[in-house]
Structure formats: structure tokens, C-alpha cells
Amino acid sequence: METILNWIQSHIDIIYIVILSVFLGIEVIGRVPSVLHTPLMSGANAIHGVVIIGAIIVMGKVEPGNYVALIIGFLAVVLGTLNVVGGFVVTDRMLEMFKKKK
């Protein structure tokens, strides 16, 4: 019991971030018109590409001689970049076609 309380105590800021982000995530897209469902999904898809930062950190910490870890890290960076770049470009292409016509 005490260990759990300690754990909560030492990670309290993270717990706050998680709880607030959950509500924010729900609130922020709550009124999206169905027209924008696909671009929104695609945009959210690009945003979770933020996982690339983890890949960069992993990659940067690997000992230069450890080739297995280097290759896995490299793959992670490539895939993460694909997610981010591809995600944003695809979303932009979709939205490009939503130009207002007068």
C-alpha cells in the first residue's frame, strides 16, 4: 500500500498530465463534423508519430559498437519518421482539396 502511495507521490505530475490530456483529447475533437473524420484521424495519426522522440533517445544512447541495438534503433527512427512525415503530408494532401470555392 505504502509503495503504491509513494509511486503516486513521485509520479504525480505525470498522472496529472495523463488525466488532463484524456479529457482534453475528448473535448478538443468533440464537435468535429463528419466531413473531417478522415483528415482528423490522419492528423492524429501523424501526431502519435511523436514516438520518434523515444526512438531518437534510444538511438543516441546506444554504445557505438553494439550493432544489434544500432540496427534496431535505426529501424525505429526510420519507421517513426515515416509515421510523422507521411502522416503530415497525407493529411495536408487531403485538406488541400478542401479549399473554399466562392
Binding site: H48, V51, I53, G54, I57
Partner: peptide, 22 residues
Amino acid sequence: FLYDNQVMLTGGILVGAAGTLL
């Protein structure tokens, strides 16, 4: 969580929540 990295946390959870709602 792993890296105590706020931007990954907010980005990930935001998408997790928004994606579930969607």
C-alpha cells in the same frame, strides 16, 4: 512514461483519447 518525456506523453495520450472518441 519511460523517458519522463512530456511531449510524448501529451501527444500520445491526446491521440489515445481523441482516437477512442472518434
